[in-house]
Design a protein around this nucleic acid. Structure first.
Lengths: 178, 178
DNA sequence: CAAAAACATGTAATTAATTACATGTTCATA
DNA sequence: TATGAACATGTAATTAATTACATGTTTTTG
C-alpha cells in the first residue's frame, strides 16, 4: 500500500496515553487495536526512529534486570499537536477491507456446489471462536458497559463484537440457504 | 503488504466467468467486488502479463471502432486448475481490516469530548449513503432474493449490506450514548 | 462540431507492509 | 541448571499497492 502514513499517528496516539517502548507498542497492535489496524515490530521500530528525528518523540533509556536496555518513548508538544490535528481532520480515507474468503465465495455460482458447505463451516468455526474471544474481552474490560473515561476503547470493542456477530450470523444464514 | 499474491487468483476467477479485457477487470474491482478487494489498473495490467507468461491466460486482439485495440484474455486449463486449487484450499485468514476512523475514536477517552459528535455524525452521513447504495444494488441485482445460479454474488452482496448496517447501527448507538 | 467524459493500455516512482535475518536477555518451570 | 518461552531491538530483502506519468481513441452531449 501507498497510504498516508497513518501508522505514525497511531503510534503518537498510543504514546500520548502513556510513554511506551517499541515492544509494548507492538503488543498494543496485537491486542487492543489489532482488529482495526496491525503493524509488525519491523515497521514500528523504524517509525519510532523517524518520529524522534522529526522531534515528535523523545526517549529515555531504561534497564530491566542486569543489562537489558530499552527505550521508553514520550510524546513532545509538537507530537501532540500533530496528533490532535490528525484526529480533527475529516476522515475521508475509506481503507479497503480485503477478505480472501469472501472473494472465493464470489466465484462459486451454483447454490448446490458441493464445496460450499465445507467452506462456510470452516469459516464459521473460526468466527465463532473469534466472537467468543471478543465478547470475553468486552465483558472483562468493560463489565459495567461504557466507561466514560475510556469511551473510545469501549466503542471500538463494541464495534468489533457487533461486526463479528454480523459475520457469524451471515455465515449461519448462508448455511441455512444451501 | 507482502501477501501471497491473491490478486492473481481473483483475476483468474473473473476471467474464468467470461473472457475480459484489463479495462473490464478494473471496472469489476470498482463495482462488484470492490467492497472486499480492490486493485488499480496499474496493478492489473502487469498481472495479466505475468499470468499470460505463465500460461494461465491467453489473449486475442480486438478492435473497437476504427483503430482502438484491446486484448481480451481467456483462461487456460492450467489457469482453471490453479483457480480451483485456490478455492479448495482452506482460507487461513487474518482479515486485514484497517479503519482509520475507528483508530481516531480509540484515542478519544472522554465520553464528553466535544469532538465526538461531529466525528460520529460525519461518518454516519457517509455510511448512510453507502448503505443506501448497497441496498439499491442488492434489490436491483437480486430482486427475488438468492439467485441459485449466482449464489456467491448474492451472498457477498448480502454480506456487504449487513456489514454496512452494523456500521450504521453502531454509529447511531454511539451517538445516543453521548 | 467542439468539448468533455468515458474508453483503453501501459510504465515509473514511491510508499507500505510482510517475511526473513540477526542478536541477545530475562523469567518461569521442570 | 538447562531449556524454552517471552522479552527486547533492530535491519535487510522482498512484495504489494498507490500515485503519478504518459499517450491516444471513442462516444456522448450541448
Amino acid at each position: 500500500m501507498a497510504q498516508k502514513n497513518i501508522l505514525q499517528f497511531i503510534i503518537l496516539g498510543l504514546i500520548n496515553d502513556h510513554p511506551q517502548t517499541g515492544y509494548e507498542l507492538t503488543k498494543s497492535f496485537d491486542n487492543d487495536i489489532g482488529e482495526f489496524w496491525s503493524a509488525k515490530h519491523s515497521q514500528i521500530y523504524p517509525q519510532l526512529k523517524t518520529l524522534e528525528e522529526k522531534q515528535y518523540l523523545t526517549h529515555t533509556m531504561e534497564v530491566s534486570g542486569e543489562k537489558l536496555e530499552r527505550k521508553r518513548y514520550s510524546i513532545t508538544p509538537a507530537g501532540q499537536h500533530l496528533l490532535t490535528a490528525w484526529i480533527a481532520e475529516p476522515t475521508i480515507n475509506q481503507t479497503n477491507g480485503k477478505d480472501e474468503f469472501v472473494l472465493k465465495l464470489y466465484f462459486i455460482h451454483d447454490q448446490t456446489d458441493p464445496r460450499l458447505t465445507t467452506m462456510l463451516e470452516e469459516q464459521l468455526q473460526y468466527h465463532t471462536e473469534k466472537l467468543t474471544h471478543l465478547k470475553n474481552q468486552l465483558s472483562k474490560k468493560f463489565p459495567d458497559g461504557g466507561d466514560p473515561a475510556n469511551f473510545g476503547h469501549y466503542l471500538i470493542l463494541s464495534h468489533a463484537v457487533s461486526r463479528e456477530t454480523e459475520y457469524y450470523d451471515w455465515l449461519n444464514d448462508a448455511l441455512k440457504q444451501i
